[in-house]
Design a binder for these strands. Structure first.
Lengths: 330, 330
DNA sequence: GTGAAAGCGCTAACAG
DNA sequence: CTGTTAGCGCTTTCAC
């Protein structure tokens, strides 16, 4: 059912249909269409499945921007908050967002990369593939990487800088008498993580070692499983810094199971500043990133790349910084 | 930068470019393009911003299906799980999903309705607008409503049926000695809710009254604020059924603040079966819906409407049913 | 106010 | 194996 059919069934020409469908109100300054005609056309167009092709329309009016948002796992609260923030920022610009959940799976990420480039005007997301693969998949469209470096000038990235926040967290723990601080690091890709490096750098001046580390999968269960391992290997640990809030929540659960009272027997500090941290008991002390700001920055960057494709990133270091958010767990 | 430009700069015709860009590997059975030519073209096309228009492509090859997913608030874990489920089900079909978060705001919902119809092939979602408005906004595309009835034949819906689950929950509470059961109902739109009706129907046979009700906003804070009101008005209440898990989690927090031990001093039962319920302490007893199934059903329905636009819903009552999931809070 | 023409960028059929 | 021809369905000039 094209506008041609509608035109025939309403006894007018295609253009009249187009006008009826587009000119919401008859513009008086350039009288486009008569009320009666318009009504007749709209009636004819009322049938199901009668819908102007978005492709044909998009071909002619290059207006609606669509960005692809790629996240590893929407059910992970961190992804959820990033997605919500990006959705909000994109909504402010009237952009549409197509969300791709890669399930933290290299294959699904590759599959996403294979199709996303041809369906959106820009890409924002978390990727674990090598940059070359990302480049190939997104051929032509601007890419904003979150929490990851880049080389291609077509790319931009939002860095996550937790150095200061983690320094503050370590200072906080030391001030409370902790001398042996462990870390539940992310057991994924580049190991040890940046966050571990920040931790080590912050611990050294206090004469605190940073070698009590256990790897955790990035889930509550991962954190829950990792804490006992950490404590078994390093029984003198009295405080734990987690790679992120989700792992920290798992650590909280494990601590309860182990009969360790938080924060008295064991202090727990997370990273990210998720809302989830405020729901658990005790509320999670954490290094909070402004995730809302992260999403907004990413969308802004996408907009900049879109409007000036040739310019490499000018603001050298686009980043969100972590800040210690003391709550009850440490 | 169109394929025309690429063609010129590579010294070939447009179609050769098209072939190079589309035929991933030179198909031997119908040898489309030579490796050398292809490479030359791809090199020429390597520049930034050089990307075949998805509109032009979509116009010709009607393949990629895009569905619009409308949710009230991605940060609400219920929405998150629905979105994740829908994303998963859509991914299985190779569909793309554009997500619209209406922030639980009638204005934003209207704004979404205004644009969504012209950008997607089908719509799945939660709406609070009157059906007529939804109809107007989605003119032409199939719509699958979640948790809500419909009249238009172009619509379909996935019903949430918690009657059995709530009956089981009430039975469970009564068996544990509770004689006075309160409800934290949703303070939104149609009040009292279906869920309250199911509660009342389930309570009556046990001689339990269903008049101890307090309204809660649909958030943890909402539940947290509502529980004290409920208990103040009805001090004899020993068990609480919440409109959903999020509100129930709020009730759990409030109970702790009030010094009521759960489940000994106060039993709490949620609704939805969110993962969140398993993270809190004590773990939430709840009436669990299969949310994964809900998302899959919605996508299947969209597919059915898409392939047979004229047929009204045949499977009269597409629904997900709640089942009691006993954990620790009741 | 409405109709006719042109063309958006691409791919699918055929020629060569 | 590559180039030429014709649309996909719509909007935007321009005449009428």
């Amino acid at each position: 059912m094209t506008i041609h059919d509608v035109a025939r069934s309403a006894g007018v020409s295609r253009q009249t249909v187009s006008r009826a469908l587009n000119d919401k109100q008859a513009l008086n300054d350039k009288g486009e269409i008569q009320g009666a005609t318009k009504r007749r056309v709209l009636d004819a167009a009322r049938e199901p499945g009668c819908q102007p092709s978005r492709f044909a329309r998009g071909l002619v009016r290059q207006d609606t921007v669509t960005v692809g948002l790629v996240i590893p796992d929407l059910l992970n609260p961190f992804s959820t908050e990033v997605a919500a923030a990006a959705l909000g920022a994109a909504g402010l610009r009237g952009w549409h967002v197509v969300v791709h959940d890669t399930s933290d799976h290299p294959d699904k990420e590759r599959a996403t990369l294979r199709v996303i480039g041809s369906q959106v005007d820009a890409v924002i997301g978390y990727f674990s593939s090598p940059e070359e693969e990302i480049d190939r998949g997104t051929r032509g469209v601007p890419v904003v990487l979150v929490g990851r470096e880049h080389r291609s000038p077509r790319f931009s990235s939002i860095r996550v800088d937790g150095a200061d926040g983690i320094r503050a967290a370590v200072g906080h723990l030391v001030a409370r008498g902790h001398r042996r601080i462990g870390m539940l690091d992310h057991s994924g890709h580049p190991e040890p993580s940046d966050r571990h490096a920040w931790f080590a750098a912050a611990a050294a001046p206090h004469g605190v070692a940073a070698d009590a580390v256990a790897g955790a999968r990035q889930s509550v269960e991962g954190g829950e499983a990792a804490l006992p391992r950490l404590l078994a290997a390093h029984p003198d640990v009295t405080a734990v810094l987690a790679f992120d809030d989700v792992i920290a929540v798992g650590a909280l659960r494990a601590a309860r199971r182990l009969g360790r009272r938080v924060p008295d027997d064991l202090a727990v500090v997370g990273f990210d500043g998720l809302r989830l941290g405020d729901l658990v008991e005790p509320a999670l002390t954490t290094v909070a990133l402004g995730i809302g700001r992260l999403g907004a920055l990413a969308v802004d960057e996408a907009a900049r790349l879109l409007s000036a494709p040739e310019h490499p990133a000018p603001r050298a270091a686009l980043a969100v910084h972590g800040a210690l958010l003391p709550r009850a767990s440490a």
